[in-house]
Each structure stands twice: as structure tokens, then as C-alpha cells.
């Protein structure tokens, strides 16, 4: 009995370590986001920080992928439909080993492989170029459909934004993914409630957004987008769901992790100053 209790204790300790490790990884991504945008003096910190936990968890705990072989045929695919949040994407790819971490400091520089929107032609690990909103999710449907046609086992993950959800094409894609039963497609809505002009609710309300996705025939879940456990659990449910694509509506905070950016629309597309960078980094230690 004693031994079993000891083992349970050890398991708990391992779980806690693992949890800390994942949280630490997300913090590291946030630090890199701040550093690269400050260095570039240009970029989108708010929406990058809001989706950091989702993309970090996808790449470190969920997706099958290989930095050594970025175009590995069996890899899970990822599409960042809200392409402007690519600093988070780039930081994760660098930490996975797709390119050196030092490369992040070349964000948006002339000739750099890391531009203001993801480009699969130049950035290792980027499966699909995006930038114009509403199109990435349609392409993700196409990639998932190709997986079905070719009887491949890969899964397709896509992150869309809440402002992006105002694009009619998002709903065309929603309809078609359910129609063709793309259960190999799992989408996240990074629901940080802010867009460039202000609160999503006031600019053009997308509510009731969970009901909308349900009505479009998706397996729809709602989670705290900053809870790594909830992200993993939700993707697990998506994986087990047959004949339906999954939408995970993730409640997030724009600018999450940096006190003076949290919930501030002003940091949608504005770089921190060097002083702000230092303050942000100290908060993220």
C-alpha cells in the first residue's frame, strides 16, 4: 500500500513538473514575441499573445510534426488564418527547431524569412501563406478534404480570429466543412473580444458565436484559451469526434501576460517601446 501511495505521489509530482514545463514554454514564447516585435518596431503583439497558449500547446503537446523534415507527408497541418498574429507562430517554430531562435530578431526586415504575414515559400514550417482574412479556413478545408481523398491520417488545425469571423467566407467554409464531414479538421477561435477599431461586440457583434458554429453543424466546444489542460482536453474530444469538424471557441485575453497590454486595443498592431519591452519581459520572467 505504502509503495502505491508513493507512486501516486511521484505521478502527481511528474504531472506538476510537466504542467510547469508547458506553462514555462508558453512564457518563453511570449517573451520572444515581445522581443521580436520590439526589435522590428512593428508587428501585432495583442493577438499574438492571446493565442500563445493555443499554438504552443498544439506544437509541443498535440501535433505530429518534424522540424527536421518540415514537409513530412504524414505531419499534421497548421493554418494561421489570422495571419497577422505570426510572431507567436514564428516563436513556436523557432523553439521547435525549424530555424534558429536568433532568426526571430529579423522579423519584418528586408530579405528576412520572417515577414509580417506567414509565407510558406520562405519560412520553414509554414504550411500555408495567409494574410487576407477569412481565406485560411477555406484552404484548411481544402487540405482536410485532400486528406480524405487520399486516405491520409494527418489532421488539420486552424486558428481564426474573432474580427476575422465577420468575413462571410468564414461561414462559407463552416458550411462546407460540415457538409463534407471533415472530422480531420479542428479549428480554434481566438476569442479575445477586440479588433482594431475596438470591441468586437460594438464593431460588429459575432454573438451568439457558439450557437452559430453549432448551427453550422460543427462539434463546438468552449474553453479557457489560456488553460493548457482545457486545450489538450478539447483537442482530445475533437480527435474522437466522427463525421463532424470541431470548433473550439477559446476565450482569451488580448495581450495576455503583459499587464499594460491586456485587454488594450491599442496593442493590436503597435510595437512596444524599448522601455515597455523591458517591463513586459520582467513580468514574463
Amino acid at each position: 500500500m505504502q509503495d502505491i501511495d508513493n507512486l501516486k505521489e511521484l505521478d502527481k509530482k511528474d504531472e506538476k513538473d510537466e504542467k510547469d514545463e508547458k506553462a514555462e514554454k508558453a512564457k518563453e514564447v511570449r517573451r520572444l514575441i515581445i522581443q521580436m516585435i520590439a526589435e522590428a518596431n512593428s508587428g501585432h503583439p495583442g493577438g499574438s499573445l492571446s493565442m500563445t497558449d493555443i499554438i504552443t500547446t498544439l506544437y509541443f503537446s498535440i501535433m505530429n510534426h518534424s522540424a527536421a523534415n518540415p514537409t513530412w507527408e504524414e505531419r499534421d497541418r497548421f493554418v494561421l488564418s489570422k495571419g497577422h498574429a505570426c510572431p507567436a507562430f514564428y516563436a513556436v517554430l523557432a523553439l521547435c527547431g525549424y530555424f534558429p531562435i536568433s532568426e526571430l530578431m529579423n522579423l519584418r526586415k528586408l530579405g528576412s524569412i520572417l515577414q509580417g504575414h506567414p509565407d510558406h515559400e520562405v519560412t520553414p514550417g509554414v504550411d500555408f501563406s495567409t494574410g487576407s482574412l477569412g481565406q485560411g479556413i477555406s484552404a484548411a478545408c481544402g487540405m482536410a478534404l485532400a486528406g480524405k481523398i487520399d486516405k491520409k491520417n494527418y489532421r488539420v488545425y486552424v486558428i481564426i480570429g474573432d474580427g476575422e469571423s465577420q468575413e462571410g467566407q468564414v461561414w462559407e467554409a463552416a458550411m462546407s466543412a460540415a457538409h463534407y464531414k471533415l472530422d480531420n479538421l479542428c479549428a480554434f477561435l481566438d476569442y479575445n473580444k477586440l479588433q482594431i477599431d475596438g470591441e468586437v461586440e460594438k464593431i460588429m457583434n459575432i454573438e451568439p458565436v457558439v450557437d452559430k458554429w453549432k448551427a453550422f453543424g460543427w462539434n463546438t466546444l468552449r474553453i479557457d484559451g489560456h488553460s493548457i489542460e482545457q486545450i489538450i482536453e478539447a483537442v482530445g474530444i475533437a480527435h474522437k469526434t466522427k463525421d463532424k469538424p470541431t470548433m473550439i471557441v477559446a476565450d482569451t485575453i488580448k495581450g495576455k501576460g503583459v499587464s499594460f497590454m491586456e485587454g488594450r486595443v491599442g496593442f493590436h498592431g503597435v510595437a512596444p517601446t524599448r522601455d515597455q519591452e523591458q517591463q513586459a519581459l520582467s513580468e514574463l520572467m
Binding site: S138, A139, A140, M143, A173
Partner: peptide, 15 residues
């Protein structure tokens, strides 16, 4: 839904 049609085509072609 031609916009979706065009981008689904792009996803298929990528694969």
C-alpha cells in the same frame, strides 16, 4: 460560394 470554392482549391493543390 465561389470564394470558399477558390480557397478550397488552393488547399487541395497545396496537398
Amino acid at each position: 460560394a465561389e470564394q470558399n470554392e477558390m480557397n478550397i482549391a488552393v488547399g487541395l493543390a497545396i496537398e
